[in-house]
Computed example of a mutant assay.
Amino acid sequence: MDLAWLEHSQYFAALAVGFFGGVHCLGMCGGLISALSFTQQAKMPKVKTHRLPILLAYNLGRVTSYALAGALAGALGASFLSLTGLQTAQHILAFFAALFMLALGLYLAGIWQDVAQLERFGSGFWRKLEPLSRRFIPIRTPWQAFPFGMIWGWLPCGLVYTILIWSLSAGSAWQGLLLMLAFGIGTLPNLLLIGVAANRLTQFSRQPAVRLGAGLMVCAFGLMMLWRLTLNF
């Protein structure tokens, strides 16, 4: 059973899922990043401000946390693979990842909302972690924004958790890291643009046609994963 297709296509797929799933990111983080964009003007109205370095540092911190989480998931999956038959176990993990990808697509499309239940698993951890981020508020420099973004990278999110489940089947800590890194990079265009055109993008993202299109695109990746897995059995 040849799994080479996973190694060559999974990173591009994760990148695309991050981009098209950015509709969900707009709802989760849009208000926060908009606040980051204008916090300096509110706190220091007489000082010339530069919003882009703040936004870049925040998102770099967020993506760094995604990559670390992917490495942990990949290492966990690799440990599981080492205890059983490599190819069979990797196919099983990839199969469940594909199912979660389909569920995520339906969630983004507004068709099936139960994926949001995944966010409950991290709610307890987040309640303990979130207060640490308040130490960096108000954010006036990129050096404050980066650790703030790292903390908020652990915000419970069904979209992130689904890609983490996918990372379990990556095969190693390094591959899991790259998978989540690709996903995080894919989310950047949407979240960086929020700081520039928050209101317009938020209104755009709430349109049913946009949500449906993004969800169906993610579903297509899930179906592709299932189809290619069946070819290798």
Rank of each mutant, 00 (worst) to 15 (best):
Q41Y: 14
M44S: 12
H24S: 06
V47W: 08
I33Y: 02
G27M: 01
G31K: 06
P53V: 08
T39A: 12
C29V: 04
P53A: 10
Y58I: 01
H24T: 01
S37D: 06
A57P: 03
G30W: 00
T49M: 12
V23A: 03
Q40K: 14
P45W: 09
L56T: 05
T49G: 11
F38L: 12
F38H: 09
T49N: 13
A35V: 11
R51G: 02
A42M: 14
M44I: 11
L32T: 07
A42G: 06
V47R: 11
S34W: 01
I54Y: 04
A57R: 02
V23K: 00
K48N: 15
H24F: 06
K43G: 07
V47I: 13
Y58T: 03
M44D: 10
V23W: 03
K46P: 03
L26W: 00
A57C: 09
L56Y: 06
T49W: 11
L55F: 00
V47Q: 12
L32F: 14
S37Y: 06
L26Y: 01
H24Y: 11
K46I: 05
G31H: 07
A42F: 13
Y58P: 00
L26A: 04
R51T: 13
M44L: 15
L52V: 13
T49A: 14
S37G: 15
Q41D: 15
K46S: 14
M28A: 13
M44T: 11
C29G: 03
K46R: 13
L36S: 02
M44P: 01
F38Q: 08
C29K: 02
A42H: 08
G30V: 04
G31Y: 09
L55M: 10
C25P: 01
K43M: 14
H50I: 07
P45V: 05
I54M: 04
A42I: 15
T49Y: 10
L36D: 00
A42N: 10
G27D: 01
C25G: 03
C25V: 02
K48C: 10
L56P: 02
A57W: 03
I54V: 12
V47N: 05
M28H: 06
H50N: 08
K43S: 14
G30F: 02
S34Y: 02
T39F: 02
C25L: 05
M28Q: 09
A35E: 05
C29N: 03
I33W: 00
H24V: 01
H50W: 13
A35S: 14
F38D: 07
H50S: 11
Q41S: 14
G27L: 07
